[in-house]
């Protein structure tokens, strides 16, 4: 729409398109401001502050909330991630196997664990596994159980991501490797999987963020004082002090990790997008 057009075609309605756009944007801002004002007026800020932002209570949380709770959260997440990555890799390769039953089994696994809430898996690992195999203990105690529960769920998502990554490597790479005398398995390990991993690093980092939050489900396994992670720690101290400030601080601790990780993911995605151009 150039200026010449508006001169040639006389306006039929009162507003031009440009004016309509301006009005529409103005209304959106107005709604936003109105919502903020309504929230500010109706919420009881004094009580909120009393319940969630007691500075002296917050101070008492340190350093335990970092050295114990955050540390445990990170440990739970990493153990679940590592176990999930290994299992996910195996399932992804099964999904691509020429052997029918492997493909079928892997597909079943993925559908099963993606279709269930992580919470149920934690309860299952905490209750059903000890019942089914009496006398046997999952190695690593709580850490082992968390790695198992988180890893079982994460593996289902990661398997699909890794499979997509492997399939995104051009066919010519396998052909070149095979023509040089690589066996199929060796070509996979030396040529295809290293390239697939470059492709799936951003989505896998995303998965790490999800696991970091899901590690809060540990509280359903029943943990000792030393094994508490952020969510349990915050909740316990909140009920001790009859004040919710610890919950708010625990939440901030999660954001301390997830926000930078999210930033890293976006950077990696931008880089990957550039590389494929």
């Amino acid at each position: 729409m150039s200026k010449a057009d508006t001169h040639v075609q006389p306006r039929k309605q009162g507003l031009t398109r440009r004016q309509k756009r301006a009005v529409s944007r103005g209304i959106q801002y107005a709604v936003f401001v109105a919502a903020l004002v309504a929230l500010g007026v109706t919420a009881d800020w004094g009580r909120l502050q009393n319940q969630f932002a007691q500075a002296d209570l917050a101070k008492e949380l340190f350093p335990d909330i970092i050295t114990l709770a955050l540390r445990n959260t990170v440990l739970y997440t990493l153990s679940g991630f590592v176990f999930g990555l290994v299992l996910g890799m195996v399932i992804a390769l099964m999904r691509l196997s020429p052997v029918g039953p492997y493909r079928w089994l892997a597909g079943l696994y993925i559908e099963f664990f993606r279709g269930l809430p992580a919470l149920l898996i934690f309860i299952f690992v905490g209750v059903a596994v000890p019942l089914a195999f009496p006398g046997t203990e999952i190695p690593g105690g709580t850490y082992g159980k968390v790695a198992l529960a988180l890893g079982l769920v994460a593996a289902a998502y990661m398997a699909e991501t890794i499979r997509a990554g492997i399939q995104a490597v051009p066919k010519g790479q396998m052909e070149a490797a095979r023509s040089l005398g690589f066996s199929h398995a060796r070509a996979m390990v030396s040529i295809i999987i290293p390239q697939a991993f470059r492709i799936v690093i951003p989505p896998l980092t995303n998965e790490l963020v999800l696991l970091f939050k899901d590690s809060s489900l540990v509280l359903f396994l029943g943990v000792t004082l030393e094994e508490r992670e952020l969510a349990k720690f915050g909740r316990d101290l909140a009920s001790e002090s009859a004040n919710s400030t610890p919950i708010l601080v625990a939440g901030l601790c999660y954001l301390l990790v997830t926000v930078p990780l999210g930033f890293v993911v976006r950077r990696l995605e931008a880089k990957a997008g550039e590389a494929t151009k």
């Binding site: 051009p170 010519g172 790479q173 070149a176 490797a177 023509s179 040089l180 005398g181 040529i191 390239q195």
Partner: peptide, 17 residues
């Protein structure tokens, strides 16, 4: 795999790693 070691192949799309 043993036979292919004795046969070099060059592709249209290069297929370098």
């Amino acid at each position: 795999d043993a036979v292919r070691r004795r046969i070099g192949m060059v592709f249209q799309q290069f297929n370098l790693f």
